[in-house]
Amino acid sequence: MSATIHRLGDKRPPSLDPMLALVAHDMNLVNKAILDRMQSDIPLIPELAGHLIAGGGKRMRPMLTLASAKLLGYPGARHHRLAAAVEFIHTATLLHDDVVDSSDLRRGRRTANIIWGNPASVLVGDFLFSRSFELMVEDGSLKVLKILSNASAVIAEGEVNQLTAVRRIDLSEERYLDIIGAKTAALFAAACRIAAVVAERTEADEAALDAYGRNLGIAFQLVDDALDYTSDAGTMGKDAGDDFREGKMTLPIILAYARADAEGRSFWQEAVLGRRISDADFAEAVARVQATRAVDDTLARARHYGQRAIDALGRFDGGAAKDAMIEAVEFAVARAY
């Protein structure tokens, strides 16, 4: 990716460390808000929410809110609670997703639905959504409320769209991009955009940060979907092949199916319908994905969207914040290598 020039010839692998260092003080305040607002007189709520919130995630989305505020030189404190709201939205969707997908692992740990059951996971997810809206209302900005509430609705639409696309071998690349644009990229975009609102910047600055977050989110999800065919549970935090066994039509399968011969198409049709889900079947799927260069081309698309994210920052002044945000894009793409 051309943005490597920003590291002035440094050959170290791209990392989130610059962003972590950039927002460390602010993130402590965000974490305090998260811990405070996930409390309840019902002990199961903080216990279950804490299992996921403390589960080792990088807090990528709230970090983007904080980094975007740094980029704009925002001196206030409103973004701390809003970053917490962003994390609550994300955590709530994860709780619901794991129920829908019947997932066993999240970030290498047993999922909440496996430990406490589906009803508790759904209801605590609802509680966290409610907490996020409390935080938005307390901020007092109707514009912020509109951005984050719209993102929440779009995420839900994306999840329903994905649910109706499961085991659909005819899913198009365009619809797949619509799905990940909604279920993943919408919150990345909103997390960045709200920083421009609280910093009282122009619509053009809002749109640029929205574009940065949206394109980063798409790149992030493309890499995640590629990793399902190149990685293992230790790397991914979920079981390798989960998407395959669940019949999810991610881009590697879409491309592999489009490029397959008659025998290959028959294999993919059976697999997507749930008739080829053994370890041997998954190994064959990996071989077929690799043979058609479907993973390589998925990652090439990720690099394309990553570059679009970097280009969106072009209007902003250079400095530590901009460099950290560029390197975060490079890190998101480099996870696959």
Rank of each mutant, 00 (worst) to 15 (best):
Y176K: 13
H80P: 02
L128I: 06
A67I: 04
D323C: 00
P62M: 08
V198C: 06
W268Y: 13
R110M: 00
D205I: 01
L227F: 05
V198S: 04
E157H: 11
V166E: 12
S266Q: 15
R78F: 00
A151P: 06
R335T: 05
R175V: 11
D205C: 04
P13R: 15
A207Y: 01
A165D: 13
L135M: 14
L71T: 09
T184W: 03
E327K: 03
N215D: 04
D178A: 12
G9D: 12
T292A: 13
G73H: 11
M325L: 15
M249Q: 11
D10E: 14
N150M: 02
L171W: 01
A300T: 13
P62A: 05
A120E: 15
G117V: 09
V86M: 07
L227I: 10
S266W: 01
A204R: 15
F282A: 00
Q290F: 00
G234E: 14
E203Y: 10
A69M: 06
I155P: 02
H80S: 00
D170G: 09
V144F: 06
A271G: 06
V286T: 11
E284R: 15
F316Q: 05
L22H: 11
L20S: 12
A151T: 09
L209A: 04
R276S: 07
K183S: 07
D323E: 15
K143F: 00
V197A: 08
G76E: 10
A182I: 00
A271C: 05
G274N: 12
A291V: 00
T298V: 03
H6N: 09
S152V: 08
R201G: 00
I89T: 11
V198R: 04
D97G: 10
T4H: 13
A85C: 09
A291H: 07
P43C: 02
D296R: 08
G76A: 07
I147L: 14
L313Q: 01
A334K: 09
G73L: 07
P119Y: 02
R301P: 01
R315P: 09
T184Q: 07
D104G: 10
H96F: 07
K238V: 05
K11T: 14
A324F: 10
H79R: 15
L48N: 02
A92Q: 12
S15C: 10
L8R: 15
V329L: 07
V198E: 09
L227S: 03
P119M: 04
E174K: 14
F188A: 05
D261G: 14
A151R: 04
D232T: 12
Y229E: 02
A199M: 09
R81Y: 10
D41A: 09
A112P: 08
L48Y: 03
G117H: 11
A302P: 09
W268H: 07
K248A: 00
V333Y: 01
G50S: 10
D224N: 06
A300N: 11
F220L: 04
A300F: 02
M249S: 10
N28L: 11
I114Q: 15
D243E: 08
G108Y: 07
L128G: 07
Q269E: 15
H6M: 12
S121C: 05
